[in-house]
Design a protein around this nucleic acid. Structure first.
Length: 572
DNA sequence: GCCGTTTTCGGCCCGACTGTTTTCAGTCG
């Protein structure tokens, strides 16, 4: 056996189980085993500590969806690099077939026929067959699906899975759609659902639900919204459309009496709903988007609000951000759900920029916006190396002058770089004169990021670590930071960690933030705003904090500035 | 494969829409 120097990361483990599930599904294996592997993969992705290490300690079994067999398979990855069953399966089923599943309208049964009836095993061969009109010869495939496949293959990365859009990019379209549909005469109620309502950092599509006096009229109006470029599906209760930028939007309409059931169903997540329904089935109840049916008597209980749905099933209402089947159902049954932080709890922003460095708006404009948001305090943290003429002294004078004229407390801050040796690039004499110090990694993400962050936290003036993993969603993977050690050191030194609210950062992530909270660490929710509009991004950070089960008390900047001064590390 | 507020064995969520069909399988969420 080969000893691996480093443990496989959770996304690598999850990817292997997902590929194994895909190949088994194409092979036609037992569907419950397949979903067990998918369930395990999802659990591994949602776990903040290395599951490989848990498996070595025999503790991975404690995670829901992971039993003795899957734990043993994880150990196989540690020892040999790959799940043995996956290695074997790849010999039987060409692995490239799994990518066919990403094509629209193509599922395991169709892939199996492409493979066995036509001998297609590569994307290239699939494209050639489609172009030659050979696919339509298959059972269950017609000219229309063949055309759809060709169209999809013409796009780059067609077989690399659905493109996910940043929540921050998708929200404007969602809000615009809600406003238009709410104004329609046939509309009774219109709401967002799906992953956007749950506040996930990225969304694959947008979900809108409604009740209406005339469902067809509302669906017609939805399908003819100005930004709609194609209608993928349209019936009497639902429709799917695609926007210019390729974003799919679903609308679903039900009678108002079951509006609560629909909102609950369509908000998901799938995992949450499956667990909810399985628990209901054990008590003789069948849950669907139309109501809760008592199987024995046949009585259907429809509810106009979500709150009634959850209460009828024996739970307290569960905030959408928590609905991932990660313990929220058990907590709701026991009445032990946390009272989650809300945006209005924030009293200030502790990481912002101005035109003194790379910001787009002036100090005065940013502060005016901060006051409009109702903040009590506001920290200006321009980049240390990029301060324009006048440097720290010049900016300090400008901040102090403005501070004297406004009711809000202005804080002199900095976002310092963490160097290769873990030191920060601003001398202590200057840091000592500042009210608030953020330290961040900006380059060399692959050069001992954990050690550098730990060293920076030892600096007595560093109050908070900015965007701890340095990830850019969809562009740059998170640096290989050991979050457990980071949290441990943060608690030991009195340093805070940030939830950076930039739409493509959201760093710490929900999973990491939850682990930090469970360890007892308080987090700062910052905008890292470089323009006045960007100060509103904290809504995204708050959504991640809620997904991480954070209460008001868990968030540093829900406290007064005086309280924060008492909470943070002692200065020399 | 996993899992347990009647179960350690025998279950494992529910419904809509499309395309290719003459009553439904496959896909999707």
């Amino acid at each position: 056996m080969i000893e691996r120097v480093s443990l496989p990361r959770n996304d690598e483990l999850a990817g292997q189980f997902e590929l194994l599930a895909d190949l088994m599904e194409i092979e036609g294996a037992d569907s419950f085993r397949i979903s067990a592997y998918r369930q395990a993969a999802a659990q591994i992705r949602e776990t903040s500590v290395p599951v490989a290490r848990l498996a070595l300690e025999g503790k991975a079994k404690e995670l829901s969806g992971i039993g003795k067999t899957i734990e043993a398979k994880i150990v196989e990855v540690v020892n040999d690099g790959e799940i043995h069953a996956l290695t074997k399966r790849k010999e039987a089923v060409p692995a490239e077939l799994a990518s066919f599943l990403r094509l629209p309208g193509v599922g395991p049964k169709t892939v199996r026929r492409m493979w066995l009836d036509l001998g297609i095993t590569t994307v290239r061969a699939l494209q050639a067959a489609a172009e030659a009109g050979a696919l339509r010869e298959l059972d269950g495939v017609g000219a229309k699906l063949e055309e759809r496949i060709l169209e999809a293959l013409a796009k780059p990365q067609a077989t690399e899975g659905p493109r996910r859009t940043l929540l921050g990019s998708a929200l404007p379209r969602l809000n615009e759609t809600l406003a238009t549909l709410r104004a329609h005469p046939a509309a009774i109620a219109v709401d967002a659902a799906g992953s956007a309502r749950r506040g996930r950092e990225t969304v694959r599509d947008l979900d809108v639900i409604a009740s209406a006096t005339d469902a067809d009229a509302l669906i017609d109006a939805f399908c003819s919204l100005p930004w709609v470029v194609s209608v993928e599906a349209k019936g009497h209760t639902k429709a799917t459309v695609v926007s210019q930028d390729g974003l799919k939007v679903d609308l679903r309409v039900v009678p108002h009496a079951s509006y609560g059931n629909l909102l609950q169903h369509f908000t998901g997540s799938k995992e949450h709903n499956v667990a909810l329904r399985e628990a209901a089935v054990r008590r003789g109840l069948s849950v669907s988007e139309y109501g809760v049916t008592d199987v024995e008597s046949g009585d259907v209980h429809a509810f106009a609000t979500e709150d009634e749905v959850y209460r009828f099933l024996g739970y307290s209402w569960i905030a959408p951000e928590l609905r991932e089947n990660l313990g929220e159902l058990e907590a709701a049954r026991a009445g032990e759900l946390p009272d989650l932080v809300v945006e209005a709890d924030l009293r200030g922003d502790l990481h912002t920029h101005t035109t003194w460095s790379d910001g787009k708006d002036t100090l005065e404009a940013m502060v005016a916006k901060a006051m409009a948001r109702g903040y009590d305090y506001y920290a200006i943290c321009d980049h240390s190396q990029r301060l324009r003429e006048g440097g720290f002294e010049g900016q300090a004078a400008a901040i102090d002058a403005l501070d004297a004229t406004v009711p809000i407390r202005l804080l002199r801050g900095v976002e310092a770089n963490i160097r290769a040796d873990g030191s920060v690039d601003v001398p202590d004499e200057i840091l000592a004169q500042l009210d608030w110090v953020v330290a961040s990694l900006h380059h060399g993400f692959d050069k001992s990021p954990t050690e550098r962050l730990l060293a920076a936290m030892e600096n007595p003036y560093v109050d908070c670590i900015g965007h701890p993993t340095g990830r850019k969603i969809g562009k740059r993977a998170p640096a290989d930071v050991d979050i457990e050690r980071l949290v441990e050191k943060a608690l030991e030194t009195g340093t805070f960690l940030e939830i950076n609210s930039q739409p493509d950062r959201l760093d710490l992530s929900d999973v990491h933030a939850r682990a930090a909270r469970e360890a007892g660490l308080k987090l700062v929710i910052d905008s890292d705003g470089h323009s006045i509009g960007a100060l509103d991004y904290v809504a995204l950070g708050v959504a991640q904090a809620r997904r991480a089960w954070l209460t008001k008390g868990d968030v540093v900047n829900t406290h007064t500035w005086k309280q924060i001064e008492a909470l943070r590390k002692r200065r020399p």
